[in-house]
């Protein structure tokens, strides 16, 4: 409980220790702490940003998927339309060809019938002439009767 010079010595020691701490201990530790706090803040900000980016990307993906689905639908519809058009076209073409063929066949058939008729007419005429020749052998002037025959041929038409 006695006071003595120790008090003054302790006072001096106290300030020396405090000075040392102020000079060599406090600044580096506080600096490190502040830097780390900054780093952590940066890291958190980066994490937040990454999260935002991710959600943005997910939105984009959904959007792209929706677009792709839509365009696929469009493609299918247009393909169907095109296919239907092709089928219609083909059907029309086929009908046209069939008609044409029928017409050609009919025309050909008409021509053939005509020819056959003419050939038949010729033959009938010849037969008639031959028959008439045989019947009217004696007094028949072929020349005189040619006009008659031609008239007859004309009537048979």
């Amino acid at each position: 409980m006695n006071l003595n010079a120790t008090l003054v010595a302790q006072l001096v020691v106290f300030f020396i220790l405090a000075w040392f701490t102020m000079k060599f201990v406090w600044p580096p530790i506080v600096k490190a702490l502040d830097e780390r706090a900054l780093k952590i803040a940066d890291g958190l900000a980066a994490a937040d940003k990454a999260k935002a980016d991710l959600s943005l990307a997910e939105k984009k993906v959904v959007e792209e998927l929706r677009k792709a689905r839509e365009s696929a639908g469009d493609v299918r519809v247009s393909a169907e339309k095109q296919a239907a058009a092709l089928i219609d076209e083909a059907r029309a073409e086929a009908a046209r060809i069939v008609t044409q063929a029928r017409e050609a066949a009919e025309a050909e058939a008409g021509v053939a019938a005509q020819r056959a008729k003419e050939a038949l007419r010729d033959q009938v005429a010849q037969l008639a002439v031959a028959g008439a020749e045989k019947i009217l052998r004696k007094e028949i002037n072929a020349q005189a009767h040619a006009d008659l025959l031609a008239n007859l041929k004309q009537e048979l038409q």
Binding site: N2, L3, N4, A5, V8, Q10
Partner: peptide
């Protein structure tokens, strides 16, 4: 004496300085 400025407590000084150095 209760107060004597010519006296120094060697043991207190020794331990406080040693502990001060350990602290630092």
């Amino acid at each position: 004496a209760v107060i004597d400025w010519s006296v120094l407590n060697i043991d207190s000084m020794f331990y406080s300085v040693v502990l001060g150095i350990i602290t630092l």
